[in-house]
Simulated scan of single mutants.
Amino acid sequence: MTIRLGYQIPNFTYPDKPVEQIFDTVVAQAREAEASGFDTVLVMDHFYQLPGIGTPDQPMLEAYTTLGALATATSTIQLSTLVTGNTYRNPPMLAKTVTTLDMVSHGRAVLGIGAGWFEREHNDFGYEFGTFTDRFERLEEALNIISPMLSGENPTFAGKWYKVESAMNNPRYRKRIPIMLGGSGEKKTFRMAAEFADHMNIICDRADVPKKVAALRQRCEEAGRDPATLPTSYLAMAVIVESEEESKRMLDSVPPDRLNRVFIGTAEQVAEQLKHDVIDAGITGLTLNLVRTGHIPGAVAQAGEALKPLVA
Rank of each mutant, 00 (worst) to 15 (best):
L61M: 14
N154P: 04
T232L: 09
E128L: 08
R225Y: 08
A158G: 11
Q49E: 11
G185S: 08
R176E: 15
E140Y: 02
L288S: 01
A267L: 06
A267T: 08
T55R: 15
P231G: 01
F12R: 07
T99A: 07
A95N: 07
V254H: 08
A193S: 03
N170C: 11
P255D: 08
K163M: 11
E246Y: 11
L307R: 09
M180K: 04
E137Y: 03
G116R: 04
D57V: 12
W161N: 08
S80D: 07
L61N: 01
L290V: 07
A63I: 06
E153H: 14
E137I: 04
N260M: 09
V239Q: 14
T99P: 01
L139P: 02
N201G: 00
D257C: 06
G54C: 01
T131L: 03
A63G: 00
W161C: 06
V254F: 05
P92K: 02
N154G: 10
Q29N: 05
E34G: 01
M168N: 13
M149Q: 06
Y234W: 06
A214E: 12
E141W: 05
I296F: 03
T65F: 07
A73W: 08
N154I: 02
I77Q: 08
D198S: 10
V83R: 02
R172T: 12
H276N: 13
E141A: 04
M103T: 11
T40P: 00
N289G: 07
F129A: 02
F157V: 09
A33T: 10
A158N: 14
T25R: 05
D252M: 06
Q302K: 15
D257E: 15
S184D: 14
F12L: 14
P297C: 05
V26F: 06
T65C: 14
D277R: 10
H276W: 14
S105M: 05
V300Q: 10
I296R: 10
T293H: 09
F118H: 13
G114S: 05
G152V: 10
G6P: 10
S247G: 13
Y88C: 06
V110F: 08
A194L: 05
